[in-house]
Design a protein around this nucleic acid. Structure first.
Lengths: 205, 205
DNA sequence: CCATTCCGATACGTGGTAGTTGCGATTCCC
DNA sequence: GGGAATCGCAACTACCACGTATCGGAATGG
């Protein structure tokens, strides 16, 4: 897997005026914003150029069409609420609540959550885009939850026979469910309740 | 809440040729199908008319624009896998597995699942549409899960202090997570695992 | 100094969809 | 039978985004 998926990298040196790296940044940022506001279909190159304050030519010089631009924007996207791996001193319960809380803050905030919503429809039809979203946004968060659960098993706080993917998807699923579909409130209390529910179960003992 | 949201109802009788009810049906069916295939943005009235085998005029005579058409189509949509309320003889565990299984079959099948994906982006921007989707598709399923859990509490199979909305959204959430985002497999085994996890919890005892 | 490349801006032709209108034919009520 | 509203079909204008081309100007390397 190469890292030079960047646009400017294609033409690193030689004679002539160099490309403005600031333009790259502004274009990708505008793409992320407009994805949330207009969705994938509603995203137009013209709007991206206008929001980024650059000419349409400057966008087309770097990306041939919408799809590569969006894929690149997602690849480079770093959420301000990136999850941190479990700390040594916190319980599995606290670690799950902390990570889920960060997920909720990220996805509840305008950018990531609305961006995800704008991408869902296209992901069903565009494997390349779906791959980028999964690799760039979802996998990292899932893997942190995996790590927390794995550590919980080693510490004896979590039963070793559970399917950690199912648990991770249930925790993430409730957030996506609320944000994308039901529009229900996503509060700190919800986080605590969800984590407690998944840890303790709902059956009588 | 009135039930006569239908299109033809607006002009019930009087002189002149009556509207063809079959055209209504074909248009709404085509709308549902195309929502899944093209998404909300990609849906065009022309394509709906073509698929339904009617003239564009016939569509515009009934619905003024895309949004009311889609809202109406969702209101009238009945999934072939509508969930059934809990039976007297089955345990809470079995009832949850049965309903979640039906949910997965419905959403995994091309129509409902893809239709949902096609709507998510627009729901974030269109409150009217969001309301129709929630009332017409989500609420029914949620209420059946609520009923199962409530009955489980009364029977003493489920702890009475749980938040049934959280539980319902975790169960539904894992399905949406897989179908809409991760693309992971949705198998009968997954259902069983998810139900067992939510009932028994993951913490050691 | 000069070729080269990038910059923002503008103009252009193309294609697809939105709605509207007109047409002849059809099907109802009175 | 006659008026009225329907039907499918096609033509039409209006609009918007695409992608390309062109412009004068700016920034680099040789």
């Amino acid at each position: 897997m190469s890292l030079d998926t960047g646009a400017t990298d294609a033409r690193a040196k030689g004679p002539g005026r160099p490309r403005d790296p600031e333009a790259d940044r502004a274009i990708l940022q505008a793409t992320i914003e407009l994805l949330g506001e207009e969705g994938y279909d509603g995203l137009s190159i013209e709007a991206v150029a206008a929001r980024a304050g650059v000419g349409k030519t400057t966008v087309y010089r770097r990306w041939p069409s919408k799809e590569p631009l969006v894929v690149d924007a997602i690849k480079r996207y770093k959420s301000p609420e990136d999850p941190q791996p479990p700390r040594e001193d916190e319980s599995t319960r606290d670690a799950l609540a902390r990570v889920l809380g960060g997920f909720i803050r990220a996805v509840g905030r305008s950018e990531s959550g609305r961006m995800m919503a704008g991408l869902v429809a296209e992901m069903a039809r565009n494997p390349e885009l779906a791959k980028a979203v999964r690799a760039g946004i979802l996998e990292h968060r899932r893997s942190v939850v995996f790590a927390i659960l794995q550590r919980g098993i080693e510490r004896g706080e979590v039963r070793p026979d559970i399917d950690i993917e199912v648990v991770a998807d249930m925790l993430g699923g409730i957030v996506m469910m609320r944000v994308l579909l039901t529009g229900g409130a996503v509060t700190p209390h919800l986080i605590r309740t969800a984590v407690d529910t998944i840890l303790d179960g709902i059956a009588t003992r």
